[in-house]
């Protein structure tokens, strides 16, 4: 057992977003960074039809546990790539959960076709805030744009998570995971997006 394993029980991170936002890649990067650090890790994800614009949920469980699935009330951290999905993930939270949520909406078609209304973002995140220990709101679109591409919003979110230091993973391990997993052509812009998020996470 490594030093990290001994001092660390279990941490459950729940990811939620919309198909196409890169949640699964972010999930994978967290797992690989934890492995770099020598932590036992298990992850769960759903492929297939949901990836075409539906809700995409995944999870990373770090520590010695059996089930890679996160039950209701069991998520220590929720990484929501979209504010409506942050609210939908509320049942996964407990009172001490840290929620990191993007403030940039992706409007569902049920709203676009008038079958439903998109709640005010303040109401969505307000409801989350009233139930959990802390909420970090991230304007992912602006930050990712600054870093060079709005498509790198997922790496901004990941950077914020890394910056908070809640996961016992060193910068070196994060960097190594990014280097190994990200395709060559998007390395630079994604690293910048990660760094932007990291700086924000550190400041909070």
């Amino acid at each position: 057992m490594t030093q990290a394993e001994q001092t660390f029980q279990a941490l459950r991170i729940f990811f939620t977003g919309v198909g196409g936002q890169g949640t699964l890649l972010a999930t994978r990067l967290v797992g690989e960074a934890a492995l770099e650090e020598g932590l036992p890790v298990a992850m769960s994800e759903i492929h297939g039809m949901a990836q075409r614009g539906g809700v995409v949920e995944s999870s990373v469980v770090v520590g010695n546990v059996c089930s890679p699935t996160i039950a209701d009330g069991e998520a220590d951290i929720v990484l929501a790539f979209e504010p409506l999905e942050a609210a939908r993930a509320l049942p996964k939270c407990h009172s001490k959960t840290l929620v990191i949520s993007s403030t940039v909406p992706v409007v569902p078609f049920t709203v676009a076709t008038g079958q439903a209304e998109y709640p005010a973002i303040e109401d969505l995140l307000g409801a989350v805030r009233s139930r959990v220990a802390s909420v970090i709101e991230v304007d992912t679109a602006a930050l990712a744009r600054d870093a060079g591409s709005e498509r790198a919003a997922n790496l901004v979110m990941l950077g914020v998570l890394a910056g908070t230091g809640r996961l016992p993973v060193s910068m070196k391990s994060w960097q190594e995971a990014l280097r190994r997993i990200l395709p060559e052509r998007v390395q630079e812009v994604n690293r910048r997006a990660f760094q932007t998020g990291y700086t924000l996470g550190r400041e909070l």
Binding site: M49, Q51, G54, G73, L84, P108, Y118, P119, R131
Partner: peptide
Amino acid sequence: RSAPPDIPGRRPTLC
């Protein structure tokens, strides 16, 4: 257990 919030659903769609 808390009930899931009543918010609009999201269905998959073609790209």
